[in-house]
């Protein structure tokens, strides 16, 4: 009799333990995400979802914790095998750069999330969408609000013309289909190539000289000094050429655009 009761208690405790550990497993039940977008990696961390990320690209370097996550390849050529080996529930891809990877993932029936923001509004929409997908909509909304609060359009009657140079050879600049264009507009400037619909058009020197920008922003390490034919451009004459901005604050569609925007505001409105 006594023995039976002890047995009962022991079995009861074991069953209880079983339930508890099952419950534990459910709260830790991880949703495995592979992010092929450095910007989205940053966004996921800002949503507190960094622990869900099981694979990133070699370019995913922010925040510092992201660097410790397993790499599946670089931005243009991530390895489909490495991605699949991580058994992800979701893979975040960039279009159009990662079109090929996306179609391979589709064939393998792995769920993908598409990131392809061409404007600030697109970024906010994608933030909301990824928030919904991960069940973190409220946090996503607060990140969106943080960005909206800090990227407010500057009202100014004196808009400065801005030329952004992404590469010097050939000259690559930004067109209308970029969020950087939106940032410049918000900061009180006008992108001199806003009339071009492409995102990163290649332009000729003559056109830049003719459009005579008041401010030049270089997002590459080379100089703009000593260029034949450029000497009478306003930005060169008045020494309003800016070089040392962090391109990740301006070219990555994530919360750090707030920092980039602050820089832009300072440069354009000083």
């Amino acid at each position: 009799m006594f023995l039976h009761r002890k047995l009962f208690v022991i079995i009861g405790c074991l069953i209880l333990l079983g339930f508890i550990s099952c419950a534990q497993e459910h709260t830790n039940s991880s949703y495995r995400v592979v992010s092929l977008s450095p910007a989205m990696t940053e966004i996921l961390f800002s949503l507190g979802a960094g622990d869900k990320i099981v694979g990133v690209t070699t370019y995913c370097d922010f925040p510092p914790q992201a660097r410790k996550i397993r790499k599946v390849g670089d931005f243009s050529n991530p390895s489909i095998e490495r991605i699949v080996a991580l058994k992800p529930d979701l893979v975040i891809v960039n279009l159009p750069e990662q079109k090929r990877i996306k179609s391979e993932l589709d064939k393998l029936e792995i769920k993908t999330f598409i990131s392809s923001p061409k404007s600030l509004q697109d970024i906010y929409k994608e933030l909301a969408a990824i928030g919904d997908t991960l069940g973190l909509r409220r946090r996503a909304d607060s990140v969106i609000n943080y960005m909206k609060q800090n990227i407010q359009t500057v009202r100014t009657s004196d808009r400065k013309s801005v030329y952004v140079e992404i590469s010097p050879k050939p000259l690559i600049t930004i067109g209308a289909a970029t969020f950087l264009n939106d940032l410049i507009n918000a900061a009180g400037g006008t992108n001199i190539f806003e009339d071009l619909e492409k995102d990163y058009p290649v332009v000729g020197q003559e056109t830049v000289i003719r459009r005579n920008p008041e401010i030049i922003i270089l997002l590459h390490p080379e100089d703009a000094s000593g260029r034949t034919g450029w000497q009478n451009i306003q930005a060169i004459k008045n020494d309003r050429v800016f070089k040392n901005l962090n391109p990740d604050h301006l070219m990555r569609p994530g919360p750090r655009l707030v920092d980039g925007f602050r820089e832009l505001k300072r440069i354009i409105n000083d």
Binding site: K169, P170, L171, G204, Q205, S225, G226, R227, T228, G229
Partner: peptide, 8 residues
Amino acid sequence: YLGIIINA
């Protein structure tokens, strides 16, 4: 490409 920037 011939339209290169000419510097020092």
